[in-house]
Amino acid sequence: MAPLPPTRLFWLAALGASAGFALAAYVFLSGPGEDAVGAGERLKVLAYSSFVNSWGPGPEIAARFAERTGVQVELRDAEDAGLLLRKLELFPADVVVGLDQLLLPEAKSARAWKPLEAGGVRFADGTFLPFDWGPLAFIYRDGEIKPPSDLDDLLDDRFESAVAIQDPRASSPGLQFLFWVLDRKGVDAGFEFLRALKPSIHTLGSSWSTTYGVFQDGQAGLALSYLTSPVYHWTHENDRRYRAAVFAEGHPAQVEYVGVPETCRKCAEAELFARFLLEPEAQRILMTKNFMLPILDEVREGTEFGRLPAVRIVELASLEALLRDREALLRRWRELGL
């Protein structure tokens, strides 16, 4: 076989070298972190992306926990909360962070969990510990649109093609919104309300980031998000136009929980970590990096979170039935043609 001409040799070498160099750089830049402590020694924590990301609360909480207890934590990304249980089937973890109240029934039926007594903490479940929460709210920019005062107000002409909400088939806040409407108005009347809402809807997003992105871009005037969302704009963009619309009828809350699967390998450390999330030090990190309210109310005093409007929290009385009928309700949602 004839030898390759130098030009071709150069290009082939460039291709191979770029792959090899990139891999070497990746391994070198990953540092010794993962291997400093043996894989079996680390506490494995499975969480959603915005907890695990370097700017999220996970890395700092893990570092503080290691300082306090000497237990090294390995954070694993499950992408979003909806995939936590799917990933847990493949990657056994000692701690699962980020299940919300809509996922708890499925989590309990899918596997056994160590009971975590919360001792009178708000939103306590008995099996899972709540670590942060946020009332669902519509966010607007002051001066741009007159905010809605309740759900029915969203049908007003001034919101024509102005509202960005999430699709409940793909997004947890979207499902919360659907259940909020159906619980508040009853199933049939709720779907009638949603049908009437159609002219107001600007975007039905596949995720929170899509709808909030559309809102941030100025395309939509109102976005379904959390009461706490304006704090990001106040503190990081120095933009105080962002506000949450307060509904007199109240707001449902999304509560995030931490759990320890029965299959944990380092169960004592796992429980320690779960309880550590409820300590003021971790609560402060969660509040400022997750932009959610802490479970311990005193943590938000003197911060921008303390300046958020007070809202009445409503419990969804028919949540159990709604969760049971979820598939049928989503089918009806699809037929609405929003």
Binding site: D167, L204, G205, S206, W333, R334, L336
Partner: peptide
Amino acid sequence: FAVPLVIGGSRAT
């Protein structure tokens, strides 16, 4: 996935 869902609405499954 995302394009039909965001731009098409709930019937655009």
